[in-house]
């Protein structure tokens, strides 16, 4: 799981163009949206693209993304369970 989390952080920074943010700055349980990384609705859709391209996981309903993308932790758990 830890390995997956490290990889995920790098991928999120790359996919979402999070300049000036280092992987170490992202706390596993911090919310990705709202206060945390302050991601927005386009970022949420981009994370769906990330899941499909990097992990072969298709999210058909973007509404589901809200739970999956709550934090790095929840995202990693979802990937582990669905890969």
């Amino acid at each position: 799981m830890d390995e997956l989390i490290v990889k995920l952080k790098g991928q999120i920074i790359e996919y979402l163009n999070l300049e000036d943010i280092n992987a170490e700055d992202i706390v596993n349980t911090d919310p990705l949206f709202g206060d945390g990384l302050a991601l927005d609705s386009i970022d949420a859709l981009e994370l769906i693209v990330l899941l499909e391209q990097e992990y072969g996981i298709v999210v058909a309903d973007p509404e589901k993304g809200k739970e999956i993308f709550e934090s790095i932790q929840t995202l990693a758990e979802y990937i582990s369970a669905n890969k």
Binding site: L16, I42, D43, L45, E46, V49, E52, Q53
Partner: peptide, 9 residues
């Protein structure tokens, strides 16, 4: 066949 919303916008 893999469009990106953040590019499309």
């Amino acid at each position: 066949k893999s469009p990106s919303p953040s590019i499309f916008v």
